[in-house]
């Protein structure tokens, strides 16, 4: 993936110089390992700050809403799908965008890697599938495949869906992955076990809303959790309120979520809230044969009524 760097910089420089765009949104190296930061380049001479490696998990589509400028954006598969959702939902015009597509081979999971070592990780060097992790007194090689973000491990849309130019050759999509093993496990539980499971995974939530803020879908001027008349949900970390927040947020993402993993990645306490969004993603697939963000022409199934919509559940 490292070889994309030159191409990304080259394209960015070109489009900034030719004034095709006013700015390019990409990543720059973070101050600590595995924590790349979103970065906006406006000057063609600054493109060398842009980088690409396996730590670019943040979904850059999140930075597109309400923009009036012409924007260049670097997009891996999931980013591009969220850009498609944005275009459908009038967050940005296709004409405003120059999308630099990045075929992706998955982002690594910082938590998994950190957990493997007791000391502080000071550097990470990536070469092909090998990741060399070193710190004070240790150095170890890991296979990237073993430490992928959970959503990346089951990703079936690694290549960008909409783009103007590619930063590298398209990669082979993963085949035969079972995307919904975890969801089926929850579906198979009886109500009590399910309730307990929800309680357990949500127990650590501190209602910081990092998940919401990292999610490109959560762009409402005022989020329902912040409304006061009516007050849909209490502001405390009372379990009922926490559940209400997570469940309703998941519903708001139904048919729109691309499973980019930004929510889970942003969570400071490591909650697997993707299990909720994935359940709805699975339902949309089963009921409407729909996957979010694969087109900029059709609205998600819950936005439209069609005579052939499934109705077997009404009996």
């Amino acid at each position: 993936m490292l070889e994309y760097n030159d191409k990304i910089r080259e394209i960015s420089k070109k489009i900034l110089k030719e004034c095709k765009v006013d700015l390019v949104i990409g990543f720059r190296k973070g101050s600590v390992p595995m924590m790349n930061e979103p970065h906006v380049v406006k000057n063609p001479d600054d493109v060398d700050k842009l980088i690409w490696d396996s730590h670019c998990g943040i979904n850059l589509a999140n930075y597109l809403t309400e923009r009036k400028e012409k924007v260049g954006i670097i997009a891996k598969g999931c980013d591009s799908r969220n850009i498609a959702v944005h275009i459908i939902e009038n967050k940005i015009d296709r004409d405003q965008l120059y999308i630099i597509g990045v075929p992706c081979q998955g982002m690594v999971d910082k938590r998994q890697i950190t957990a493997k070592f007791s000391g502080e990780i000071q550097s990470i060097i990536e070469k092909g599938d090998t990741i060399t992790v070193s710190g004070n007194g240790f150095e170890e090689k890991l296979s990237k495949t073993d430490v992928l973000q959970k959503n990346c491990a089951v990703c079936t849309h690694r290549n960008p869906v909409v783009y103007d130019e590619l930063a590298g050759d398209l990669v082979e999509e993963q085949r035969g992955v079972d995307r919904y093993e975890d969801v089926r496990a929850v579906e198979a539980m009886d109500s009590e076990a399910k309730w307990q499971y929800f309680d357990e995974i949500l127990a650590p939530c501190i209602r910081c809303y990092a998940c919401r803020n990292a999610c490109p879908l959560c762009y409402c001027p005022t989020c329902f959790v912040d409304e006061s008349r009516p007050q849909w949900v209490g502001k405390s970390i009372d379990p009922t309120d926490t559940r209400t927040f997570h469940f309703l947020r998941a519903y708001h993402c139904a048919g729109r979520c691309t499973d980019c993993g930004a929510c889970e990645r942003a969570c400071p306490v490591g909650i697997n809230m993707r299990v909720f969004t994935k359940k709805l993603e699975k339902d949309c697939k089963d009921l409407f044969d729909w996957e979010a963000g694969l087109t900029i022409d059709v609205r998600p199934p819950l936005d439209i009524y069609r005579p052939e919509d499934p109705d077997e559940f009404i009996k």
Partner: peptide, 10 residues
Amino acid sequence: SAKFFLAALR
């Protein structure tokens, strides 16, 4: 709205 269900149950 889903919120009405939840409110009633609550």
